[in-house]
Amino acid sequence: MPSERRRRAGGHDEHATVVTATAVRLRVDPIACDAFGYCVELLPEIVGLDEWGFPVLDDTPVPPYLIDLAKRAVRDCPRRALLLERAPSSPG
């Protein structure tokens, strides 16, 4: 039912993400990330911390009830280092 929504997260292709209502995951750009930690504060359920304060993410899809918070974390990331992208094993 929820149709695929296209969202251009940036002007460049590497920032272009396709967000679906079901199967998305968060990815962190380790080069851009500066360990502000907003994503950990906003999404403690799925974002861990390493010993240096940088976020640790796994490949599991973002649960639907956290999608809005995940979008906010992407939007609020001071370094724009957080991306939402389609999970590779999305059933479609």
Binding site: F36, G37, Y38, E41, L42, P78
Partner: peptide
């Protein structure tokens, strides 16, 4: 940031 005022809230 504190526990009462997390960083994202301050931003």
């Amino acid at each position: 940031g504190t526990t009462q005022w997390p960083r994202f809230a301050l931003q």
